[in-house]
Amino acid sequence: MTDQSVSFPTESLEYKLGRFNAKERFALIQRVLGVKFVPHDDFLGEVLAKCGIEVTTEKVFCAMDFHLDWLYAALMSDELRPDEPLPLLAGESGAFPVTGRQQDADFVMCFTERPANAPAITHLLLLEAKGVGNWDTKQMRSKLAQYRAMKPAFDRNPNVRPRLVLMSPLNPISSATRQSAAFRAVLDSFEDFGEIVWVGLPVENTFSVVRCNAKGTPDGKTPTHWKLSSRQAALS
């Protein structure tokens, strides 16, 4: 597996994040396509503009499906020492920052801005994507609760600036539909990382395969037939 951490200083958050990045899909895409995980210039520029980050950079750590437990460990570790027991402390809400679940950020981008006469600033962009169907309110509430429980880790890294970025065909933040009200309420309650931003995610029309009866009525228990069903792009 390609160790993306080697191109960053060992004391950097980018390096430490790379030491946890154990996703096979990450290594598979690099191996099959012969590419490194780096953001496209146009996409990076759009995201930075939406986040109000006025800096250009050529070295960005990227990872997909990155466990939040890994993120917490990277933020809490000055040095990465295996097999050393560390106290498991609950956050202000009573929730634990290390859950043991595979709750993750869909995509992570991290890079450090080093102004000439000012302390370095590490930008941590946490991307959540939804291509088809509806945003999962329960899942988002759970992820944001874990981010809140990780507050001590962010507090000990004041140079790290996290931002939450949503990606989908339609903007769930500006939507005024009743269907999206609960999801928007969850987003509105989360102010830990500043303003949540949205970036468009074009999705092609695709089909799903559905088990059904002879009349085409979905039936997952006693199906006799199957059919194709058009997927709906992520609703706001």
Rank of each mutant, 00 (worst) to 15 (best):
G216E: 12
H67P: 14
C51K: 12
M1Q: 11
S168Y: 08
Q179K: 15
G220K: 08
A74R: 00
D42F: 06
R184Y: 11
V55P: 09
D65N: 10
K50P: 14
L86V: 11
A105D: 04
L124A: 04
E14H: 07
A118H: 13
A118Y: 11
L48D: 04
F207M: 09
N205F: 04
K16M: 06
M76R: 11
V197F: 10
K215Y: 01
G200M: 03
W226L: 08
I121F: 06
P97H: 01
V60T: 07
R148E: 15
S230Q: 14
Q139S: 10
R156I: 03
G45A: 03
N171F: 06
H40V: 00
N134K: 15
E204M: 10
S12L: 04
D136C: 10
R81A: 11
R178Q: 14
V6E: 12
P169D: 01
E92W: 00
P169I: 00
V199D: 06
S7V: 08
L68T: 03
A214P: 03
F193A: 02
V186A: 06
S174Y: 03
H40L: 09
T222K: 15
D83K: 13
V165W: 02
N205A: 11
K50S: 07
F96V: 01
I173Y: 13
Q4N: 09
L13R: 01
F37D: 05
F26H: 13
